[in-house]
Each structure stands twice: as structure tokens, then as C-alpha cells.
Amino acid sequence: MNVVVHIDRLVMDGVALEAGQQHLLQAAVQAELVRLLAAGGLAPELAGGIAGGMAVPRIAGGELALPAGAQGGQAGRGIAAGVYRAIGGVAP
């Protein structure tokens, strides 16, 4: 089964990344989400709809508390975990 995840817009209130950290954030979200989906799969209610294709217009990943000074990689892994909780379940 192939799963394609397209994140059109990511809203992060109150987070200021240093210059150049956006690319690290993007790479970390992608790598961690791939890892989580490979290890734990999709939530059953979503997995059943994948065969015919489906789109979920919006998911709420919840709140993420980052320690002071957290940058792209750490923030990206936390964001991926929030997205995974919304589409997959409990992180493996």
C-alpha cells in the first residue's frame, strides 16, 4: 500500500525558527512521519478508504510544547508525532 501525504500549510503559532531552520523542520517532519507510518500504519478508519483514494482536508495535530531554543529538527519530529496521532494512532 502506498500512502501519499501532502501538507499544504503548516501553522505554528509562537514559534520563531532561525534562518535556515525551515528546511531542517521540513526534512524532520518528512523523515519522522515516514518512520511512524512504516512502523505503525494508518488508523483503521483511514486505511479502509485508501484503496479508492481519499483526501482529508484538515487535521489538527494538537498542541506541541517545545523547549526554549528548539529548532527545526526537534520541532519537526514533534509535529510529525502530532500528525501521526491524528492519522495513525499511538506512536509505535
Rank of each mutant, 00 (worst) to 15 (best):
A55I: 12
A16Q: 13
L17R: 09
R77Q: 08
L64K: 08
A43E: 06
A55D: 11
P92L: 14
A75R: 03
G69K: 10
Q21D: 11
G89R: 01
L36G: 01
M1E: 11
Q30K: 04
D8H: 05
R85M: 11
G41C: 00
G69E: 12
G52E: 04
A28F: 00
V11I: 11
E18T: 03
R85Q: 11
A75Q: 03
I87N: 05
G52S: 10
L24N: 15
Q71P: 11
M12H: 03
Q22V: 04
A28R: 06
M12E: 06
Q74F: 12
E18L: 05
Q21R: 02
G53D: 03
A60R: 15
G49K: 15
V90D: 10
E45N: 11
D8C: 02
G53A: 04
V11P: 15
R9N: 08
G88I: 04
G14N: 08
Q30P: 08
Q21Y: 05
G89P: 06
L37H: 06
G40Y: 01
Y84C: 07
G69W: 00
L25Q: 00
V34G: 09
V3M: 12
I87W: 12
L37K: 07
V5Q: 09
R9Q: 05
G52T: 03
V56F: 09
A70Y: 02
G61K: 00
I7K: 13
V90S: 15
G69N: 10
V56A: 13
A60H: 07
E45D: 15
A91N: 06
G14T: 13
V11C: 09
A27E: 14
L42K: 01
A68M: 00
G72N: 02
V4Y: 11
Q21F: 02
M12I: 08
G52L: 01
A28G: 03
I50A: 15
R77Y: 05
V5K: 00
Q22D: 07
L66P: 14
A39R: 13
V5F: 01
E32M: 02
I50D: 13
L64C: 08
G78V: 06
P67G: 13
A19I: 09
V56R: 07
Q22E: 02
G89F: 13
I79K: 00
Q22K: 08
V15F: 00
A28N: 01
A68L: 01
I79H: 11
I59M: 06
A80P: 01
G14F: 07
V3I: 12
A51R: 09
G73M: 12
Q74S: 10
M12N: 01
A39L: 09
Q71F: 09
A28V: 03
P44V: 07
A16W: 05
G52W: 03
L37P: 08
A68H: 03
G76L: 00
P57I: 02
P67Q: 04
R77E: 11
V11N: 15
Q71A: 13
D13M: 13
P57H: 11
G82D: 12
A70Q: 04
E32G: 06
Q21H: 07
L36H: 03
A60K: 15
A81C: 15
A60V: 15
Q71K: 02
G40D: 14
A81R: 08
G61M: 09
G61Y: 08
I87C: 01
A75Y: 03
L25T: 05
Q22G: 10
R77L: 15
G53R: 06
N2L: 10
A65Q: 07
Y84H: 02
Q26M: 09
A86V: 04
A70K: 01
A27K: 10
N2T: 11
E18W: 04
M54P: 10
E18Q: 07
Q74R: 14
